[in-house]
Design a protein around this nucleic acid. Structure first.
Ligand SMILES: [Mn+2]
Ligand SMILES: [Mn+2]
Ligand SMILES: [Zn+2]
Ligand SMILES: [Zn+2]
Lengths: 138, 138
DNA sequence: TACTTATTGAAAACGATTTTCAATAACATG
DNA sequence: CATGTTATTGAAAATCGTTTTCAATAAGTA
């Protein structure tokens, strides 16, 4: 998997491929840490000097819309993004260095059935995030 | 349980009891929906006309600091508040009307041990939220 | 009742995000 | 490859939510 996949996704959806967009894609794709718009801007500008912050916002918007990236919610803030996982996945975040990992294999069926019965809610989806310390930080 | 509990908590922590604070407390306490600062402002001003939005922010800040309210994270935004649950609890949100309920009794020990082993992370805490439709909305 | 000082709301400041706009560059067409 | 159409660009301005500043006020204390 390479950044070209994101590039063709953009292309296939009628978006033009520009140097600005390439710089943003190259920066966000494959990052192990969630990045805020400003962080993306600072990193991407090393690859493409003329880049504007506005274009970072606009590109992140499109990548999110195409489900190529996803927003990361944290106690400190909820405006950082990371490459989206494939299929149904959850996040594991390092509280110290901000590293992000995906995991799957949670089985919440019993739980949701139980809660559904107790509350009368029809449960549609769930968010599960784990926080801790990565190998380097613990 | 009544709003007086929050009032005495504020008092016990050295904060003065004012009409503005009473209006905010009365509004947030016991609300079944998460409220944003503006929503709190609009509702609370019906009880106390002179209330300023700044005071709403300042009071919410204190209530959060005393763990009497907690922030609710949602796909649409993360600046709404609700009365905090007692002990370790999780949220169940109605995607239609915004109603909020608490639940407990999730058992994620097996899951976290498993993830911990696979990833090498030391897991410290978790966020779990369920989304669905409440009895009225489904 | 008088005093101290935390609290107030209005206004200004702020930071993040969005909108506006004219110049530019991507890409379809010939 | 040259040309035309128009999506995309970055700068500047506007906007939105939140925070800070400040002088007036009112809560709590003695
Ligand atoms: Mn899951
Ligand atoms: Mn739990
Ligand atoms: Zn780490
Ligand atoms: Zn509902």
């Amino acid at each position: 998997m390479t950044t070209e996949i994101w590039i063709s996704q953009l292309q296939d959806n009628g978006y033009r491929i520009t140097s600005a967009r390439r710089a943003v894609v190259d920066t966000v794709y494959g990052s192990t840490h969630a990045l805020t718009p400003i962080e993306v801007y600072d990193k991407a500008r090393k690859k493409y000097r003329a880049l504007g912050l506005v274009t970072v916002y606009r590109t992140l918007e499109k990548l999110e819309e195409l489900h190529l990236i996803q927003r990361v919610h944290q106690p400190i803030g909820c405006q950082a993004f990371i490459s989206a996982g494939v299929g149904h996945q959850h996040l594991l975040l390092c509280q110290n260095c901000g590293q992000v990992e995906f995991f799957d294999g949670d089985d919440l069926d019993a739980l949701t059935k139980n809660i559904s019965r107790k509350t009368g809610y029809q449960i549609k989806e769930h968010w599960l995030q784990l926080f801790g310390l990565c190998i380097n930080c613990k």
